[in-house]
Computed example of a mutant assay.
Amino acid sequence: MIANNDSQKTTPLTKRLATAIRREQIAETSLKLISLHGLEALNIVAIAEDIGLAPSAIYRHFSGKEEILESVSGLLQDRLLGNVRRVCAETDDPLKRLHLLLQSHLNLVLKGSGIPRYVFATGSEGVNRQESTL
Score class of each variant (00 low, 15 high):
Tyr59Gly: 12
Asp92Arg: 07
Asp93Val: 02
Leu106Met: 07
Pro94Ala: 03
Ala57Glu: 11
Ile68Asp: 04
Ile115Asp: 04
Val119Ile: 15
Leu100Arg: 01
Gly64Ser: 13
Leu75Phe: 13
Glu40Ala: 14
Leu80Trp: 09
Arg85Met: 04
Leu106Tyr: 03
His105Cys: 03
Ser113Ile: 08
Arg60Glu: 09
Pro116Asp: 06
Asp78Leu: 06
Leu42Lys: 01
Pro94Cys: 03
Val72Trp: 08
His61Ser: 11
Leu80Ile: 13
Ala46Trp: 04
Glu67Gly: 10
Ser35Thr: 05
Arg60Asn: 12
Leu95Asp: 11
Ile68Phe: 12
Asp78Arg: 15
Ser73Thr: 13
Gln77Asp: 08
Ser73Ala: 13
Leu80His: 01
Arg85Tyr: 06
Val72Lys: 02
Ser73Leu: 14
Ile34Thr: 01
Gly52Ala: 03
Leu81Ser: 08
Ile34Phe: 11
Arg79Asp: 07
Thr91Ala: 01
Ala41Gln: 07
Tyr118Thr: 05
Phe120Glu: 09
Glu70Asn: 14
Gly52Val: 01
Cys88Thr: 00
Ala121Gln: 11
Asp50Leu: 05
Lys32Glu: 15
Arg79Ala: 07
Thr29Val: 15
Ile115Trp: 13
Arg86Pro: 00
Val87Phe: 02
Gly64Tyr: 12
His105Thr: 10
Ala89Gly: 07
Ile58Met: 10
His61Trp: 08
Gly38Val: 02
Leu39Trp: 06
Gly64Glu: 11
Leu98Glu: 00
Leu102Met: 00
Gly74Arg: 13
Ala54Ile: 05
His105Asp: 00
Arg97Cys: 02
Ser35Lys: 08
Ser71Phe: 11
Arg85Gln: 11
Ser71Met: 12
Asp50Glu: 13
Ala46Arg: 07
Val87Thr: 01
Val119His: 09
Val109Ile: 10
Leu106Arg: 04
Val109Trp: 00
Asp50Ala: 12
Ser104Asp: 04
Leu31Cys: 11
Ser113Asn: 13
Val87Met: 02
Asn107Val: 04
Ser71Gly: 15
Ala27Asp: 15
Asn43Lys: 06
Ser56Glu: 10
Ser63Ile: 14
Phe120Asn: 10
Ala41His: 09
Leu31Phe: 10
Ile58Gly: 05
Ile34Lys: 02
Ala54Trp: 03
Gly38Lys: 02
Thr29Asn: 12
Ile115Val: 14
Ser30Gln: 08
Leu36Arg: 09
Phe120Leu: 15
Ala57Asn: 10
Asp78Gln: 10
Leu100Pro: 01
Leu33Asn: 06
Leu36Phe: 05
Ser63Ala: 13
